[in-house]
Amino acid sequence: MHSRREFIHRLAISTAGIPFLSSKFPFFDDRPLRVAIMGLGGYGTRVGEAMQSCRRAKLVGVISGTPSKIKAWQEKYNIPDKNCYNYENFDNIKENTDIDAVYVITPNALHHDHVIRAAKAGKHVICEKPMALNAKEGQDMVNACREANVKLLVGYRMHFEPKTLEIVRMRKEGEFGKILFFQGLSGFKIGDPNQWRLDKDLAGGGSLMDIGIYAINGARYMVGEEPVWVTAQETKTDPQKFKDGVDETIQFQMGFPSGAVASCLSTYNMNNLDRFFLNGEKGFAELQPSTGYGPIEGKTHIGPLTQPHKTHQTVQMDEMAGIILDGHKAIVPVDGVEGLKDLQIIDAIYEACRSGQKVSLQA
């Protein structure tokens, strides 16, 4: 009779050429991506809760400037003291081998510094969108992560959403024919006038930086091209709430190399705006709601989209674990270069608002 050790050894040899076993048998599961969340506000809380259902990503640490929040998260998620940091001492995470990646979910103006510090500490970084305040900052962050040999990903949860990906698949396979037009409507009536999203120093702008980026990014993955020009017009009806440098409503247009055009709206002063529409010579696709937390609803010229809803942040974190740990490639990219492209367009839209002129985008 063979010993148990001999049996395991022979089993390992016999299955060495079958890489798919890890996804089918629980005792072959790969280790999880161990994540520390930086910024324990509303969205950080949503991500933390969603991660409890992840298969490949695990919440193991927190970074916050509020001791009471750290304590509450420790109790809720069983996080040890050694994995808890504040904004002053989190560079010490470099010595912590229990943490693989930092998810930066702080106000926009802090992303640049926080991402670069995490990269210098040798940790992979996931950063909420917009990745930075402008393209120059974004390029700094991409460079820092490259130099540190860590991955930089951006929290584009819609890039993993099933109905969205079905439209991308149909477009790639030519089912809409030549793409002619995209419309993206993104907005809501914002509440508390004292929140950081209405503080230019922290937000870097207004609705465009928060909700309009969905229409920018959506136009790019729906049309399947990079825009070559933008025009834009800003409207402000409440200068008390939306002070200088904080945009209330921006309408913007983009042109693509094929001749397709996009017409988009970003606003903090209207509800019922969460719609994408893609039109081609052979058919169309519509999502409404298109970017909310779900469920996303949609249809195309051949009928309703019926892909099941899954919690976006759970799917995102599992997929990002595969990208970081296994080198998987996302169908729609979520890396720092993708985030940088959106920032370049945002810069151009603000310039078009200031100048009233069409702004060309470098290829």
Rank of each mutant, 00 (worst) to 15 (best):
D244L: 10
V337K: 13
A262T: 04
A363V: 10
D238R: 09
I302Q: 06
I93L: 02
P227I: 09
F20I: 15
H309F: 06
E225S: 03
L185H: 09
A121S: 14
T311M: 11
T97M: 15
P130Q: 08
T237Y: 07
F182C: 04
L287S: 01
N86P: 07
L185M: 11
A135K: 06
H301N: 12
E128W: 08
G303M: 12
I179W: 06
M317A: 12
M170F: 07
I324K: 15
M320L: 03
K24P: 14
E175W: 14
R157M: 11
I346Q: 08
L340Q: 08
L21N: 07
F25K: 09
L59A: 03
F27G: 10
L340S: 07
R4K: 11
K69A: 00
S207Q: 06
D98W: 13
K310V: 06
A16F: 14
D247N: 15
M254H: 12
L202E: 07
Y221Q: 08
I302L: 12
F176R: 00
V104Q: 00
S64Q: 05
G224P: 06
M254Q: 10
A260Q: 04
A363N: 12
E351T: 01
I216P: 03
P239E: 08
L110C: 08
H111P: 01
D98P: 00
Y85W: 09
L11C: 10
D210R: 00
L152I: 10
A215N: 05
E286L: 15
E147P: 02
M209T: 06
K58M: 10
V315L: 04
L152G: 02
G218Q: 00
L265W: 09
L198M: 10
N272L: 09
V62K: 15
G283D: 04
I105K: 12
E161L: 01
